[in-house]
Nucleic acid binder design. Structure first.
Lengths: 111, 111
DNA sequence: TCCTTCTATCGTATATCTACGATAAACGAT
DNA sequence: ATCGTTTATCGTAGATATACGATAGAAGGA
């Protein structure tokens, strides 16, 4: 019982929720910022920036890759992570649109 | 073991993550939109809009109230939910700022 | 008063997230 | 070929999230 019903919603809502899920942990926000700031994309230092074990950071990175915000490759002892700016742009556009659509009916105050 | 380390991050990051958590489920995105569209704030119809049980919707509403995006009161058989526009504005501002700060270093492509 | 309606909360079950250590896998250097 | 470095994955444990039915509580109407 209690199967998740995430997928029963409109694709648009699911997409916004995915964006939310991606940034729903401060570690992932920090990782995104770190990757964006490190234009060189050599990103072993992410682990040093965070109060988390290497394996935990790797899990957070995996989530970010699943959502699509981050793309990366590992070549042995080196790594290459970077923001997928296209995906990020898409997500943030639909998110901004959602935020700006909300107050359209902001007519009557209540409560 | 495995205590959450959410709170060990900068307050700024935690706040963005809270916003993310609030919209990390499509049901909550739908609820926010429904409340915003129903300027009258009589919101028993939310349950009818969603493929979820009333108690589940109530839980999602509780999360939105915890984060602060929604405020509401119940007066017996009537309800009054509405967006806290001030909080929403604060959150979305810091979120937009985060999004716009990210590509500042978008100099070198890689991967 | 009793009934209906609406919402919150409780209890419960399952799923997912978060976190760590241990280990594997890939590659450069020796 | 072996070692060291870097990252991913596995195994595991505890914490949250998700979902539902059952029930409680509050208020209006009969």
């Amino acid at each position: 019982m209690a199967v998740s019903k995430r997928e029963e919603f409109d694709q648009e809502l699911v997409q916004i929720a995915e964006m939310g899920r991606a940034i729903a942990h401060p570690a992932r926000v920090a990782i995104l910022r770190a990757i964006a700031a490190k234009q060189g994309c050599v990103c072993g230092e992410i682990v040093d920036l965070l109060p988390l074990a290497q394996s935990t950071v790797s899990q957070h990175l995996k989530i970010l890759k699943e959502v699509g915000l981050v793309k990366g490759e590992v070549e042995g002892p080196r790594s290459c992570y970077c923001i997928d700016w296209e995906i990020l742009g898409k997500y943030s556009a639909s998110f901004k649109q959602f935020l700006e659509m909300l107050p359209e009916h902001k007519i009557s105050e209540c409560c």
